[in-house]
Amino acid sequence: MAALLVYSEKIDTARELVAGGKQLAAALGLGVSAVALGPGAGAAASELAAAGADTVYVSEDAAFEGWPADAVAAGLAQVADIAGATVVLVGSTRRGKETAPRLAQKLGAGCVSDVNGLIAEDGDLVAARYAFGGATTAREKVATPVKVFAVMPKTFSVEGAIAGAGTVETPTLDVKSSVRVVDRRAKEGDHVNLDAAPLIVGVGRGFNAREDLALGDELAGALGAVVGCTKSLADFEWLGEDRIIGLSGAKTAPDLYLGVGVSGQIQHTVGVAGAKLIAAVNKDKEAPIFAMADYGLVGDLYEVLPALVERLKNV
């Protein structure tokens, strides 16, 4: 039986791909196989077999340490051949996103990157992804016999996934990497998880100076919200990269997104399109952010934010 093969070096993403892949595979008449690579991958393999994959291929080859793109692409291509895969889903983390096209090139396959929705339609897969910097959503099909999709984390939910008892296989793979890791260190800065935040205050260029962001922090504190930002604020190093919302950062889905001094450029707002409520504070009544907002406060943020903080004390 031909297979839909899923892979991510991140176990949470791999579980999502198994859960989502299972439904797609059922519609296409395929089995679901998963791959776990790298020293210590055996534990992930057992977890994926229990999470619903029919077969999990695992290799703890030292060449997969740190998941270099050349070795992982070669390993996945060999497993795809063994598994008879016609569809390969790769989790679109940074590592996955650079590996999927290399794999596709090896397989002579078309590939869709940064997929944020994948459905089976008339026996084929249709992938959704942002285009034109987020202004549009392109729906794309792959025209080659083997199809590769790099799927964004959180595209599929593991909720309601049916447990399984798949088999684990340990193929011998012929892989090596020509890239040598010299050093690894954690990025500096406080690490925030915008993906999971229920309330987000987004700050942008409307703030005149870095120290004025304290106003945004105060508002976030009063709301119980997490602070995110536009890319330009991170480029100025006013805030860390992990606070970027949008095309080059987090794609969030909070109950409330409140943009403060955010003009509403699509490269940012694409990261909040999934918010239940969108609100904005901006002194320009014509700012594009108001066109996509549920609630708008028109005024100088230096007056509106203290007023909001004051009002929130009485909630």
């Binding site: 590939c111 869709v112 794309e140 099909k141 609630y295």
Partner: peptide, 24 residues
Amino acid sequence: VREVVSNLAEEQDRKHILFEGSAA
């Protein structure tokens, strides 16, 4: 190797309520 089926802007359904008056 790829076919673009469609490429359209998403439709957004928002309330578009703009408040008026003083900051308070």
